[in-house]
Design a protein around this nucleic acid. Structure first.
Lengths: 175, 175
DNA sequence: GTTGAAATTAGCCGTCT
DNA sequence: AGACGGCTAATTTCAAC
């Protein structure tokens, strides 16, 4: 055979995740406070094997980081809101990025839709939100904002490793 | 003295967080993969003292859990979107709650504003979003939805223990 | 990937400051 | 309430198979 080594050299892009990887990721996304031994029991591997895979998944960036999730109310931020920012020009100005410096701002996305940027913020009270909105409005090119204050949070979980497979037509099991 | 024991018995509500607690929470929210010895160095306490506090913070619920945060694209969900659901009656129907069963749904909040419910979803492709929107529209009382597809995510971090104190007038440091 | 052993670390006493 | 010492059990980590 000749000339096969440059056609799809080995694999392009990141290594695909096998069933073991998926199970490890699902387990760690649900609770990262687990020993490799416990993980091994869950996914069906030995502790060193799990350790090896976790190390690889971290290196490759599949696992971004592992963090403690705090209770917003307990740390003095009972008020959560999404803020839609409508920018005149093109949403991503360097100045706008600066609002990420506020610890109250947790997420910042540019989006397609009738908003240029969506922020997720969490703060002490409405006054703090008012102040932040003032800061945003003071930026050049900001046409307006719309805020959606959370009344209740029914679900708040990290990225799930699982995907919906029974597809289509899983007509939402009644109750 | 008489009759002082029922007036503010000791303390009501959760114990307030002191400066050490704040530092511990900030460190763990940024990276939960730390030994108590390392944490102690950061916050200025001995390992046992840190251990004691972390245990208390977990018991009291200030630390909800510690999780691995996965890369959406790497797990096959490159498409993130916020979906606003406008419900006819009162947003929180039991049926609507059932969409939390989809692993693609990460957050579900009822909000004040011109949307009854806001969902954060992450999925494989637009077809998957179309399917999910179909499921939502099939629910009784759903008047309509508006979707905001994320083009770029500039910030995505957990609840921060810090709060903005230099307040008001921190005019967003120029670059 | 598995097994088995070594080096760290976690977890838990006391007691002292 | 925290520091310190030591102690045991558990976990991480590295070795060989």
């Amino acid at each position: 055979m000749e000339n096969t080594e440059d056609v799809r050299p080995k694999r392009r892009g990141p290594a695909p995740l096998d069933a073991f990887d998926r199970r490890i990721l699902a387990a760690l996304a649900a609770d990262a406070d687990r020993s490799y031994a416990a993980l091994g029991e869950i996914v069906g591997l030995s502790p060193p094997a799990v350790h090896e895979r976790v190390k690889r998944l971290k290196r490759s960036g599949v696992i971004r980081d592992t963090v403690a999730r705090l209770d917003g109310t307990a740390v003095g931020k009972p008020l959560m809101a999404f803020v839609h920012v409508e920018a005149a020009g093109w949403g991503k100005s360097e100045r706008l990025m600066q609002i990420a410096r506020f610890p109250e701002v947790e997420e910042l996305h540019s989006v397609a839709g009738d908003a240029s940027v969506i922020l997720k913020v969490r703060m002490e009270n409405p006054q703090a939100l008012e102040f932040l909105l003032g800061q945003i409005h003071s930026l050049a090119g900001v046409r307006g904002t719309r805020s959606y204050i959370a009344l209740s949070t029914y679900l708040d979980r990290p990225v799930q490793a699982e995907v919906t497979t029974e597809w289509p037509n899983v007509p939402l099991p009644p109750e």
